[in-house]
């Protein structure tokens, strides 16, 4: 597999949200606006890339049987770092994302990439894979966030473009499910050709 393919597969072909259906909790939970989706996506990308790097570096010294617990500790450390750093420098976003930041630990996407890719591949490839998957995840979250924000509050990235009430349901919980359902269907339509 060439480098470009490792990087780009996360966007459409193996998009973690639309195709692999991983990490659905944060996908639905934080995408009330495009900014929140982007913030969550980037935080996850950071954790993904860093844990892929470390896992790839230490893969040959970790005994096979304690592989999973070691990975969990590595991932949890980076998640806590992200949590603390966001609290210090972007407090408003931190309080919006709330519980979903520590929950990056149990995002199947992060663990999945560490186990399925980084523990078997070289450092360079693992970084590319983490970056591609992470940005693909961020792309999906931002897209869903933007759709919900546009339909629900008639604004995009916090900028109001019409003075009227949007379709409330899209900002509220049901809108997350409906928005994602139609985006997945749309993605299938596009990739089917």
């Amino acid at each position: 597999m060439n480098k470009w393919k490792i990087f780009s597969k996360g966007f459409i072909k193996e998009n973690p949200v639309f195709v692999l259906l991983l990490g659905l909790c944060p996908t639905l939970g934080v995408t009330t606006s495009a900014i929140n989706g982007l913030g969550m996506g980037l935080a996850t990308t950071f954790v993904l890339v860093m844990s892929n790097i470390v896992v790839s570096l230490v893969k040959s010294v970790i005994p096979n049987k304690v592989r999973i617990p070691s990975f969990i500790v590595i991932i949890a450390s980076f998640v806590t770092i992200v949590d603390l750093v966001m609290k210090a420098y972007v407090p408003a976003l931190h309080s919006q994302l709330g519980l979903f930041i520590p929950l990056i630990v149990v995002n199947c996407l992060v663990m999945g990439r560490a186990e399925a890719f980084a523990s078997k591949n070289s450092l360079g490839d693992s970084i590319l894979d983490g970056l591609g998957m992470g940005l693909g995840f961020a792309f999906a979250l931002t897209l869903l966030g933007a759709v919900r924000e546009i339909l629900g509050s008639l604004s995009i990235f916090g900028i109001q473009f019409a003075e009227a009430d949007g379709m409330l349901v899209f900002v509220l919980a049901p809108g997350a499910f409906l928005g994602l359902a139609y985006l997945i269907a749309l993605m299938r339509k596009i990739t089917d050709k």
């Binding site: 259906l21 349901v169 919980a173 049901p174 809108g175 997350a176 499910f177 409906l178 994602l180 359902a181 139609y182 997945i184 269907a185 749309l186 299938r188 339509k189 089917d192």
Partner: peptide
């Protein structure tokens, strides 16, 4: 075709959530 499986399930979840 595009709605089969997960998307349809998500729509149902949305209605339940409503």
């Amino acid at each position: 075709k595009g709605m089969r499986g997960v998307p349809a399930a998500l729509v149902v979840a949305g209605i339940l959530s409503l």
